[in-house]
Design a protein around this nucleic acid. Sequence first.
DNA 1: CTCCTGGATA
DNA 2: TATCCCGGAG
Length: 219
Amino acid sequence: MYQKLMDIYDRMYKHFGPRHWWPADTPFEVVVGAILTQSVAWRNVEQAIKNLKQAGLLDLVAIAHAELDELARLIRPTRYYNMKARKLQAFCRHVLENYDGSLERLFAKDLWPLREELLGIYGIGEETADSILLYAAEKPIFVVDAYTKRIFSRLGMVDADIKYGQLQRFFMDHIPPDVMLYNEYHAQIDAVGNNYCAAKKPSCGECPLRPLCGFASAV
DNA sequence: CTCCTGGATA
DNA sequence: TATCCCGGAG
């Protein structure tokens, strides 16, 4: 299975090249982006982060003490801005109160205890937690998302209604825990999902995984 | 399951 | 106008 998963990886990488994920200047910016991108296109997140930066609010302590209305106004492009303002503040206050505002101290924890702690913070579910763990804390955990499930179920490798944890275990059982590899693998999956493997009208003709995909053959 | 509730694209 | 986008809480 390792060979097959790496064959898929190689085909994607040759097609798209390096994706340079996560697009952020600092680990804290990764966290902010991970929360803001929930169910929203990344281009909307870029505008919101720009707004926060200009307002001097792309900062853990500043967000912890900010007014929710002001936060919401700045992140408006990311939709669900009232909920996300609460989520950003919940994370920042957690780190401020328990780690003296230091992300490094939070990230010093071991992978799985840290994951459980992140999941306990309001607004952080499995995908957001794993994105923070891999792309900000640089822990070797495989990030799974809707694209991953759709692509690998269409490839015929997993069940269409597989749960998040099961799909994550599928990858981590077969691919050695390497931060750089997990980083690039998920980024490549996103590129396939974003450009070709759409839910309704997939563009199978140009997909680098077409030769391996039973779904593409049927389209 | 519903709610949350912007912006680019075609 | 319809659709989709790097989900999570209640």
